[in-house]
Design a binder for these strands. Structure first.
Lengths: 195, 195
DNA sequence: AATATTATGGAGAGTACCCTCTAGAACATG
DNA sequence: CATGTTCTAGAGGGTACTCTCCATAATATT
């Protein structure tokens, strides 16, 4: 009992991803997204409460899409060490497969106006962060790395380090080199070595 | 033979640093900087050709200030390994001493409108990048890490990894924990280990 | 003291963007 | 076919920012 939409949400978010990858988060304006899919600006406000809501949706859809495979990789393999290596490798492989979304991830929620997000989106973001923290803590425990320092070292190994590797290349505009997965895995393994 | 300036360049750049640290690069508008020091907007255009030039100056002054101590640290110590450790430690210590400037570094030249920079500023930026690349290559050579993969591993160890550590905390709004220098040094050392 | 030089101080044009609002179009259901 | 609902379509107000321009002020030199 309603008129069918001509522009659906995912189509608009796809355009937003493209704009964010090319011009940064500030390039994701309501008008730019509208123009990019040929929609009038008014239509955007039927889907999103405002610009902060749009930015939150793009960010969360991307992060959640990434995390899906990330958790699976962490739990895969034989033992915590192998899981860590697989997770690191997944960060790079996923970024290679989704370069635009990876460029988006490298910015961080703050640049996507996190401070202005509606309540519900903030909760979604926090939930994702908690899940990552918990998974990393479990890994650290299984590896025998205790205390604040050990936890942080594991975080660096399986999250920040592979992201750094991706950032180094994508920010330069180049694609990821073929050996990137291999390098990420080696470096993560070196950091997970209990000294 | 001229009226003395009431607002000198460094004072304006200081304000720009403050704004960038608090609201991100997009918060560094000509009006905001002017208002922040109590100057009329016109005065800003006597010092900087436009907003791109202002952003370039803030960025370059900060990066060059950072690199000064960084190169000294890289060359310090006993042998390349110790130099790498000192460099990693320097990244963290400098960020602790200059939290606002560190927040600025974490953004990257691209977010400061690098694409719109005047020619001269681009050259200055390139020169700095070249110097870092050369220093890292020299370190890799001294450590016996050859090839593209070895070079990249050393870059991660002495540049990206310590920056990641800083980012993890500063982006969350927290200050750096006391053990950060120690952790950075340990992790860098682990990555520089020739396996 | 006259002059050249360099700043200030502030008004205002031009532009881009966010968002609102209204009229009407397209469809499912009774 | 009538009705109610959801969407399109686009005009337009409000706001923030960049940049220009010009009259005026303060100084060093002659």
């Amino acid at each position: 009992m309603a008129r069918p939409p001509r522009f659906d949400i995912s189509q608009l978010l796809d355009a937003a991803v493209r704009l964010a990858a090319e011009h940064g988060p500030s390039g994701v304006t309501m008008s730019a997204v509208a123009q990019s899919v040929g929609a009038p600006s008014g239509s955007l406000y039927h889907r999103f409460a405002g610009r902060p809501a749009l930015l939150a949706e793009v960010w969360l859809r991307t992060v959640e899409g990434f995390q899906e495979g990330y958790f699976a990789a962490l739990r895969s393999g034989d033992g915590p060490r192998a899981g860590g290596r697989a997770a690191s490798r997944h960060v790079v492989a996923w970024s290679r497969a989704h370069p635009q979304e990876a460029a988006l991830l490298l910015y961080g929620a703050h640049e996507f106006g996190r401070d202005d997000w509606p309540e519900g989106h903030l909760r979604r973001a926090d939930e994702g962060n908690m899940r990552v923290r918990a998974a990393v803590a479990a890994l650290a425990g299984a590896l025998g790395l205790h205390g604040e320092l050990g936890l942080e070292r594991v975080s660096l190994a399986v999250v920040d380090l592979p992201l750094s590797l991706v950032r180094r290349h994508l920010r330069g505009g180049e694609p990821l080199p073929p050996h990137a997965e291999e390098l990420a895995e080696q470096c993560t393994d070196a950091l997970l070595t209990v000294g």
